[in-house]
């Protein structure tokens, strides 16, 4: 068994938790803004984020991941999801698992059990990053303003995810559904992205959803 220190890292629900955009008071903006907004932003807050590393070509690894998560290990630039669970390729030996709030400890234990004896790593990075969801007909326009990466559906179909340069910084762009995109951002950059996205979305109309 592993010598890694595996423990529940999330404090209980009785402990007050502030999201990376707590100071922006997004709930005060719910339901306001233009009718038929071009862009709707939703803070997918306080989710579980796990970094998983292992040998992609080892069938014991890919099989173990499937056993633990019910998801196939995605190949380069892919993201697969089932319900609220998603698994994204980050590099040839690295993946990002995002799960509903509070499930990360159980999932880590399932992964470690299914992958016991293999050369792997599971790290809880929930505190370091967060997820913003953008949906609506004008999201692609906002992305085109922000990144040099080609976000046309021919190059960026649903199910693709890339880490790239965005508005002079870096983040991960994930295409989850036709008009739905996700940005995985560093927690410490949350305010910067919030300001940037407000500015870039203004001409299309921005709404904030719960």
């Amino acid at each position: 068994m592993t010598t890694a220190n595996v423990y529940q890292q999330r404090p209980g629900d009785d402990v007050k938790a502030e999201t990376p955009l707590h100071h922006a008071n997004l709930p005060s903006l719910f339901g306001k803004g233009r009718n038929n907004p071009g862009v709707t932003l939703r803070e997918r807050k306080l989710l579980g984020h796990l970094t998983l590393r292992g040998e992609a070509h080892d069938s014991a690894f890919s099989g173990g991941v499937h056993k633990a998560l019910g998801l196939e290990l995605p190949v380069a630039l892919g993201v697969v999801s089932q319900g609220e669970l998603s698994l994204q390729w980050m590099g040839p030996d690295e993946w990002l698992l995002i799960c509903p709030r509070g499930q990360e400890f159980a999932l880590e234990q399932q992964l470690r059990e299914a992958l016991a004896g293999l050369h792997i790593q599971v790290v809880n990075v929930s505190g370091g990053q967060t997820l913003l969801e953008l949906s609506g007909p004008s999201v692609r326009q906002v992305l085109m303003k922000s990144t040099s990466y080609d976000v046309h559906p021919d190059n960026f179909p649903v199910g693709k995810a890339v880490s790239t340069v965005f508005a002079k910084s870096q983040l991960i762009i994930r295409h989850m559904a036709e008009d739905t995109w996700e940005l995985v951002i560093r927690r410490s950059f949350a305010d910067y992205w919030w300001l940037w996205l407000q500015d870039a979305s203004a001409e299309y109309g921005l709404a904030i959803a719960e």
């Binding site: 380069a76 630039l77 590099g91 040839p92 040099s148 990466y149 890339v162 790239t164 340069v165």
Partner: peptide, 18 residues
């Protein structure tokens, strides 16, 4: 701007990513 082929991502990417 140059486009550089990443052998891991298996596609051309903008020079500023490298």
């Amino acid at each position: 701007m140059l486009q550089i082929f990443c052998p891991h991502c298996a596609e051309l990417r903008s020079e500023e990513e490298f």
